[in-house]
């Protein structure tokens, strides 16, 4: 026979247990119980400003025009009403000419498009625009050379594992494992590898 104190403790424990169990079981149902779309961190792709910024960092200032024409102007494919980064950088007075610094993309004083969604899941048009942009940037000598140099490589660098990792880290800076796909391809050119990495979707997820 349990003492009164122990019985009270047991009841409290059972009550807590059922409360926690209910919360644990109901929370996913509450989240998924309706049909509304939920933005998930592993599905939310960067907006046009994020994509353009990352690509400019990799391919250099000479990529601006290509990025303007194929990423920044494709509002409905990539999303992003306006760039908040300019506001921050103005205050910080970075002084560097980045693509998002153009006044027309600024929030509050530029041509912000309030009807555009902040994040747009990938669709075929986005994929198409990105593939085209990657091809154009890799085909242009100045932008290709910038990317190769940024990776610490030259056009004739060997396709060793360590060099492939350097190229990989342009887009996936935290990647530790080298994809087998890069090692298996026969006689790839650095342009082919760079283009493929650029077109792979997953670096677009912020």
């Amino acid at each position: 026979m349990l003492s009164l104190k122990k019985r009270i403790l047991k009841i409290q424990k059972d009550r807590n247990f059922f409360l926690v169990m209910t919360l644990l079981l109901c929370s996913p149902l509450a989240v998924y119980g309706n049909s509304k779309k939920i933005y998930r961190a592993d599905r939310r792709m960067g907006d046009r400003f994020y994509i353009a910024s990352r690509l400019q960092r990799i391919f250099g200032a000479e990529s601006s025009k290509t990025l303007e024409e194929n990423i920044l102007s494709k509002v409905r494919a990539f999303g992003g009403a306006c760039s908040p980064y300019n506001v921050i950088s103005e205050f910080q007075k970075e002084g560097k000419k980045r693509i998002n610094h153009h006044t027309k993309y600024r929030c509050y004083s530029g041509l912000a498009d309030s009807k555009v969604e902040p994040f747009i899941d990938a669709g075929i048009l986005r994929t198409g625009h990105l593939h085209k942009t990657c091809d154009l940037l890799v085909a242009k000598q100045q932008t290709y050379q910038f990317a190769i140099n940024l990776a610490g490589l030259g056009s004739n660098s060997a396709k060793s594992d360590s060099n492939l990792k350097k190229m990989l880290r342009l887009f996936y800076p935290h990647s530790k494992k080298l994809p087998l796909a890069l090692k298996k391809v026969k006689n790839p050119s650095w342009k082919l590898i760079l283009s493929s990495l650029c077109k792979s979707d997953y670096w677009q997820i912020p």
Binding site: P179, V185, S196, K199, S200, Y202, I205
Partner: peptide
Amino acid sequence: ELLTNLMNELGANSRY
């Protein structure tokens, strides 16, 4: 082909 294989590996654990 390279892009297909790369995507298969990089996205293997992604819900996307």
